[in-house]
Each structure stands twice: as structure tokens, then as C-alpha cells.
Design a protein around this nucleic acid. Structure first.
Lengths: 117, 117
DNA sequence: TATCATACTGTACGGCACACACTATTGTCA
DNA sequence: TGACAATAGTGTGTGCCGTACAGTATGATA
């Protein structure tokens, strides 16, 4: 009973932890064009499960913010919408990466300094 | 103009990035009892600005979830509410730390693997 | 004693972003 | 043909943070 509660809290905290990193992980895979479904598979392969219902709206938002360009490929059997980093997307991605590394450094410091005592 | 837009997007992404880490950073400082204001100062010293209006509700939420215990100190000049990790809080904190390290590892892998090509 | 700054805690509200649970379409293969 | 995979999309609910504001007590100052 208490176990369940703890597990549940942990899950939601873990969710929160991954939340902010979603954009970063998506951007990191879009130097090469990808379509939604391929991204889901690709990220899952690398350890990131992302719900399609989360990813699709995200891609559209990022396109609207002009971090991504997109085009439809109607050649193949099925129409696919490919997304790729725009110039601004590239710029933001590299800056966001720096911020990420900064956050990691600081958190690790907090975690470690508490362990040293 | 475009600079502003990019800056603005970066800021909100950065915000999102730190969001999930707030709980972790707060928990990491609560092996020793702290009151709200001292936490704000402590975290700021270590590079984490956190708005009091963010922290106070957070502390109460964590207490309600029983990750923290609290008591009022009415001895001093002003009443202060001290918070400290509960047993469950301790347990969750250490598990959350592991999850954090896992996320870091995966993200770093994503970032790095894209750079290697 | 009136007033002002500062330490300290608290509440209300808005907005954003994700998860989840759907719908819809097309192709494929049994 | 019927079921399932691939692919894209939408709508709703919920949680959480930031911003802004309110409130109290203390000590200083004049």
C-alpha cells in the first residue's frame, strides 16, 4: 500500500524529470529529416519512449515556432511529413545543449556535495 | 527582432529544462532541516534561483505527499517552519537520483552520437 | 510613536505543455 | 475481406510553475 504510493510519486517525479528533456531529445535527432513515426521508433531504440500523441503536437509546435521545417513526401506508399532543423532550430539546439550541460553540472554538484559530508 | 524571439524561446525551453529538476534540487538540501527562506538563499548560492512563490507551495505539496516532515520553531525572533526529509522522502530522493543519472546518461548519448557523425 | 525596510510565509490565478485516449486513413498480408 | 501495422492528427484533463499580490512581525530610525 505504502509501496504503491511511493512508486506512484516516483513515477510522476520521473515524468517531470523527462519532460523538459523531450524537446532536447527530439531536436537532437533532427539534423537528418525524420517523420513522426520514424522518430518514435528511433527514440524508443535509444531508450526514450515517447507517446505519439505527445510527439505529433510537439512537432507542430516546434514548426510553428520556426525551429523546424517540414515537407510532405507523397512519393512513397503513404504520405509522410518530414521534419528537419531550421537554421534557428540549429542555433537553439546548440545553445540548449549548453544550458543542459550547465544544469547537469549544477545538479550533480548538489547531489555530490551532500554525499561528501 | 528575430534575436528576441530566439532568446525568448530559449528561455522558455530552459525553464522547462529546470522544471523537473526543482524537486530534486530541493530534496537534495533537506537532509538537514531548512526553512523556506534559508533554502532560497542556499540554492541561490549554489547556482539555483528559485522564486519564493514557487518554493513555498512546493514545500507544502511535498509535505502533503509525506516526503517531508515539518515543525515550527517559535523560539527565535520570528516563527520559522522547518522542513526535513522523512524516511520516505529519503528513499524517494535516492531513487530519484538514480533516475536522474539515467536520464543524463541517455541524453548525453543522444547529444554525443549526433556529434560523432 | 509613527513609519519604513526587510525577513518570512502564504494564496490566487493564468498559461503552458505533456499524457492519454481517442479518430481517421491507407496499405498489407493472411 | 478482415485484421493489423503504419502514419498523422485532435481534444481534453491535469499538474506545475511563475508572477503578482497579501499579510505579519521585527528592528531601525527619526
Amino acid at each position: 500500500m505504502n509501496e504503491n504510493k511511493e512508486t506512484q510519486i516516483l513515477e510522476s517525479l520521473d515524468l517531470e524529470l523527462r519532460r523538459g528533456t523531450i524537446v532536447l531529445s527530439v531536436l537532437s535527432q533532427l539534423k537528418q529529416p525524420q517523420y513522426g513515426y520514424s522518430l518514435v521508433v528511433l527514440l524508443e531504440d535509444k531508450g526514450f519512449k515517447i507517446d505519439p500523441g505527445t510527439l505529433y503536437p510537439l512537432l507542430r509546435r516546434l514548426e510553428k515556432q520556426e525551429l523546424l521545417n517540414s515537407h510532405w513526401d507523397t512519393e512513397g506508399t503513404k504520405p509522410r511529413k518530414y521534419y528537419v532543423l531550421s537554421d534557428m532550430g540549429n542555433s537553439i539546439y546548440s545553445k540548449l545543449t549548453e544550458q543542459w550541460l550547465d544544469v547537469v553540472k549544477k545538479i550533480n554538484y548538489l547531489i555530490r556535495s551532500e554525499k561528501d559530508e
